[in-house]
Design a protein around this nucleic acid. Structure first.
Lengths: 190, 190
DNA sequence: GCTTCGGGATGACATTTGTCAGACGCCGGG
DNA sequence: CCCGGCGTCTGACAAATGTCATCCCGAAGC
């Protein structure tokens, strides 16, 4: 519904044409490859492939296409990854709707559009401190699985899982698994 | 942004006037009390007061106003509570945007609009099995607080908190606190 | 009047976590 | 070539968590 509403609104702008819509990351890449638009506007949380991965693929397959990320969550790690994937803009859904069309025009003219406060947060927070394995294990813990479950799912020993979780807990300066998951998530580290 | 976009779209409909917007639950109640609209369209997750509570208050203060809930999450418990609060419609954000205006018209003509699948889920899931206190304790646990924190925050003994959590874990047929929180949340029980 | 149920508490117990200290192998940078 | 970091594992230990039985109280229902 949101996508549809935004598409309708953007269509009303005289200088903007909406050439396609997609519900998933993979679909977005496919549509972009065919329609070769000037701008792709992507959400991050999507079924299938996430928006940042999709952004990277679109940049590779359609280099002349500017990729913009529009997301609900202002997470530093998201911004960082989006930039690394070659995004031209990072917008948060709670800015006024008027700004969307304006941002698209600025991106088309070659500018990059990023919320200054969020940029500061991303820089001051530093890069993701979690090692790939720690990230993987912590991700496997988000649903409340027990250590044993995680060990089985990742083909690791229980002790190893405990160690990774322990170090993730310390790196996030959390007090237990649950807090670690929360903190990591809201930094955009997962 | 979403609210703004939907408002703009609805304004384009010849028979619909948008008479006010609000960012929080309390604000929504205040605006409704002043503008006395035919329809109030509310989200559930909002800063301040949640949309279901707001719905109840609007029904009491402006009885001729039909309240509609438009939310991201199709949680049975949400639907149930919305109905108990006197809502006339329960829409999920992933239905097409076209349907929104149609639903508003149907509500105005006295109909109730509810996704049939969700209604079935709500009925088959039965009512919230958690006692008020269990709900309270489980809610206090969502952020990963330790048992001691929760006990302090709620002025309870640690043992009592453990007991409530334990029974919440069993009622949700979860395997630990975290799973209980997740299951309860996605049933809309918190 | 008795029973049931929810709220609140205690104490005991088994399990699960979280922490630490090692150990080994691999790889990449000085 | 050696060191550090990462991945993996183990064993040991303390603390937190989950479960149970049992108790007390007050309110509601039969």
């Amino acid at each position: 519904m949101i996508r549809g509403a935004l598409a309708s609104l953007l269509s009303l702008e005289p200088d903007i044409d909406v050439v396609g819509e997609a519900a998933t990351g993979d679909e977005a890449v496919a549509v972009a490859a065919v329609t070769r638009p000037d701008v792709a506007l992507l959400d991050i949380e999507m079924p299938g492939k996430d928006g940042i991965t999709a952004a990277g693929e679109i940049r590779r397959e359609v280099p002349e296409c500017h990729v913009m990320i529009l997301t609900t969550f202002a997470r530093p790690g998201y911004l960082r990854r989006a930039m690394e994937a070659g995004a031209s803009a990072f917008l948060v859904k709670d800015s006024p709707a008027r700004e969307l069309a304006a941002a698209i025009r600025r991106v088309l003219s070659g500018e990059r559009v990023i919320d200054p406060g969020l940029a500061a947060a991303a820089l001051s927070a530093g890069p993701n401190p979690l090692s790939p394995r720690e990230r993987e294990v912590l991700s496997a813990a988000v649903d409340g699985s027990t250590i044993n479950d995680i060990a089985a799912r990742l083909h690791l020993s229980e002790g190893t899982v405990r160690n990774y979780l322990s170090s993730a807990i310390q790196k996030t300066s959390a007090r237990n698994r649950m807090e670690a998951v929360q903190k990591a998530q809201d930094q955009g580290w997962l």
